[in-house]
Design a protein around this nucleic acid. Sequence first.
DNA 1: CTCCTTAAGCACAGATCTGTGCGTACGGCA
DNA 2: TGCCGTACGCACAGATCTGTGCTTAAGGAG
Lengths: 199, 199
Amino acid sequence: MWVTSKEPAPRLRKSPEQVRSAVHQAVIDLLSDPEGADLTIPAVAQRAGVNHTSVYRRWGSREALLADVVVTRLERDWPLADTGSLRGDLTAWAEAGVASIRTAEGRLLIRAVALSMPGSATAQGERAQQFQRRLGAIERIRERAVTRGEVPPPLDQILDQLVAPLYLRAIFGIDPPASGYPELLVDRLLGGTGASRPG
Amino acid sequence: MWVTSKEPAPRLRKSPEQVRSAVHQAVIDLLSDPEGADLTIPAVAQRAGVNHTSVYRRWGSREALLADVVVTRLERDWPLADTGSLRGDLTAWAEAGVASIRTAEGRLLIRAVALSMPGSATAQGERAQQFQRRLGAIERIRERAVTRGEVPPPLDQILDQLVAPLYLRAIFGIDPPASGYPELLVDRLLGGTGASRPG
DNA sequence: CTCCTTAAGCACAGATCTGTGCGTACGGCA
DNA sequence: TGCCGTACGCACAGATCTGTGCTTAAGGAG
């Protein structure tokens, strides 16, 4: 009894880059697509068309994988602009954020920033630290402003009035006002028209 | 070969209320205590000294259990005050929030509000809706203000300037400024001293 | 072309989670 | 006191996740 085409199954193998790309996309898909798919490593691997051991060995854990995807995509989709002024930089940053929030993927990524942090209370310092890294863009904006001779608001205030609204809306899926939102936030932060100019 | 004390193991059983209480506390403990304990139902049950089937049958899923704990505790720890004025109500609400944020348990609960939502993008509407329920306090504060003849800021603005900073700090474990923070937030929202008085 | 390092795929197994059926303790009620 | 519904604990089992050892394909260096 012969089985036709008994070739030993070409076993086509993906290159490391293909694996990386496919797995990343699979994570996004699983976060987006089904209702409450629980983003397990076998599920990701299957969706990516990759053996699950490849994922286990490369990333080690679900947390690490998620963090990798989030950092990679967010740094690509929510970049740091350099417009030459504090107000311009903050507005550009907020605009990029609003644009991200308006896409399903963007909301998922920002939300995952909160989820991907180590979940314990003991690790609260870690979480703050990781988040601070994500806030590197804000810090650099402030530093550039100082170099220029501008006086930026303290980080706490930027957190409260610019970062927090964007993150809250992303996490809970609340649409931002239809138009002028980035400018509105920056105006509230810096004052009506241009209050942050040096003396 | 006789085994000494062959009594059939008294099989001491907890009452439903004891189970509920022990399980709730176990969830809090597991969220707080270890590094990255993953809050599985067996783990919760073991920590609570309860059979895991009890948890499965009563709550059904990890998500439902977490949501139950969060709602119960938050409504207890972050209540809604009635001070007789919009400014007073908002300040009291913010003060309660800051107090919660300063405790490890409070941060965990608020953070869990975000985590306990159904994780899919499709269910974004649901998440917003659930969050809106948590915002019932804010809505009631606004309604009472309107009844009094005051003109409260739109919900969006309260979200941006009062709710978002508190939630962001809770989720990412960023300590609020040492003193005067609730008043600071409310002042930014309503204006320096008492701008929300009716005409 | 050959060697060599890297990493993907396969087979297999232990651990853990999830869920079901059954017996029975507890509290309320007549 | 006896009956009865609720729901807790136990035993057991299927599914799924997590991880290991091995083989082998792919790409670069000499």
